[in-house]
Amino acid sequence: MAPATARPGRVPLGDLWLSAKPDDPAARRGWIGEQLLDLVVLDHRPSQASPALFDIDLEGLGDVYDRTDGVDRPGGITGFVLSDPNDAPLGVCADLTGVFREPTEPPIPHVTLVGCRPEPPLLTAIAAAHQTTKAGLRRRRVSAEVGAVAADGSAVPLVDGIVSGTLLSSVPSRLDTGLIDVTIAIDAREPRPAGTRGILDVWFTGRPTERNLWAHYDRTLRDVWAGVALGHHRREAPDRQPGTVFHLDGRFVTDIEGFYCAIGEAINGPGGYFGRSLGALDDCLSGKWGAETPFRLVWHNSPVARHHLVTGQDHFRHGPSTTLDTLLELLTAHHVDVELR
């Protein structure tokens, strides 16, 4: 590879785009390339092909929907280009290894629905459980969103909770007469974080009445908490009037997920939702999510966020970090008067 600059040591590169050279047959066939995330330079050395070139070792992630996804190598390619997010080329290389791969097996091959009371579509799949013809396999296909059932019997969809695959079997459940346990060979998909069930248990009897119950969770489960809060958000509730003063408890804003949980509760009370990404926050600030701008946000213990929400690479969200200043710019653009305390 001939890089724009060659620097020794472990050097962060961030997110880059891998593509074919413009005159390459793969580019003419429409191959758009692959995005590589959180790249770091591990080492470099003179190439055996030519002392004027370098072989460079990079560490990072491929941008795929699921870790089970395969990444196909385009046929007949003669060279690759690495570009930064602004399309500025960083270097070209004749070949590379480690990016293109076959799909892997799902981390959890089977899902069992325990104590299931099936509706007609699932009964159709159960009836075809032993059919192996193409038509039978189509009947055995299951695809559904998972909802959490609360103590009052209401169901709330679980954000990103999907079960899809081929039904394998069903047996009577030990939980109760008339219920069955259904096993499904699932499609490749990331499982939900293990702590999700514990969060659903917190919400089982209804929306929490105590603030900061999310504070002891790590970033993954804070994001799950915000997703559960989204599922429980009542869109029919009117916005608070313009000019309202909201108070954000910033003691636990040690990451961007903590901010989203905290501002959700500042605007909509314990268990409240007001975005779980910059795009979602922007939508919420446009109205119909609990607060109509302009309003005032008193951010208590703001030095916690000033210390943690800093410039850098966010290895959890695989992109540039969302800083406190970024949040303040967005809030200000929506006519939110932020008082940092």
Score class of each variant (00 low, 15 high):
C93H: 11
P85K: 02
P109E: 07
P74R: 07
R101T: 11
G76K: 07
A94N: 11
P74S: 07
R101A: 11
G98S: 08
F100D: 06
L58T: 08
D55P: 04
P46M: 00
I108R: 00
D95Q: 13
I56Y: 01
V81L: 10
C93R: 03
A94I: 14
H44Q: 13
P85Q: 05
T104K: 09
S47C: 14
F100C: 07
E59Q: 12
G70K: 13
D87K: 01
S47K: 05
S50M: 06
G76L: 11
V71P: 07
R67W: 09
G98F: 08
F100T: 08
D72Q: 15
G62Y: 01
P46I: 07
P107W: 09
T104R: 11
D66V: 15
S83E: 07
V64E: 09
R101Y: 09
G62P: 05
V81M: 10
R73G: 05
A49I: 13
S50P: 07
G91N: 00
V64L: 13
P103T: 05
G91R: 00
P109L: 03
T78S: 14
P103K: 09
P103F: 11
G91H: 00
F54P: 00
T68L: 03
F80R: 00
D72G: 14
I108T: 06
A49Q: 10
L96M: 04
I77L: 14
G75F: 11
I108K: 04
L58E: 10
A49L: 14
V99N: 01
C93E: 10
I77M: 14
E105H: 06
G75P: 08
L58W: 14
Q48H: 09
R67C: 08
D84R: 02
D69K: 00
L58Y: 15
V81Q: 03
T97K: 01
D57F: 10
P89S: 02
V71L: 15
N86K: 08
R67H: 12
I56R: 02
N86Y: 10
S50N: 14
L61M: 12
G98I: 12
